[in-house]
């Protein structure tokens, strides 16, 4: 997995967009939450596309549905209504195959 530090490498997001995504996720789920961008946005040859995010936290999440909806809405608003999908991996949630796929093919923001 490639790591990006508020810079645009291996993905089609601007520095400001990466910072926005991180700030929103940290605001909702704490500063230790890790965000991975996966899906079409990490493909430099694709155009446009949804923003697919995997958010990982090490502690149980009380409101997984509400938290993912809040994160998606706030990021979408900051990106002019771009469609954003957020999945959360936390110790109290079911493991999903998509988590591993996102980790393997995604970019840690």
């Amino acid at each position: 997995m490639v790591e990006a530090s508020c810079q645009n490498s291996g993905m089609r997001l601007t520095e400001d967009q990466i910072c926005l995504i991180r700030n929103v996720v940290h605001g909702v789920l704490g500063v230790r939450a890790r965000v991975t961008l996966f899906g079409s946005r990490v493909d430099d040859t694709a155009r446009g596309g949804d923003i697919d995010l995997l958010v990982e936290i090490d502690h149980p999440v009380d409101h997984p549905a509400l938290s993912s909806a809040q994160i998606a809405v706030r990021i979408s608003r900051g990106m002019h209504g771009r469609r954003v999908d957020v999945i959360i991996d936390a110790p109290n949630l079911k493991r999903q195959a998509i988590f591993q796929i996102a980790r393997e093919n995604g970019v840690l923001l």
Partner: peptide, 19 residues
């Protein structure tokens, strides 16, 4: 807008994670 998105997560056939 958040409530609108939540509607997709209320569908019991589709959301296997009961939490």
């Amino acid at each position: 807008m958040a409530a609108r998105r939540l509607r997709n997560l209320m569908v019991h056939e589709y959301i296997e994670d009961r939490q």
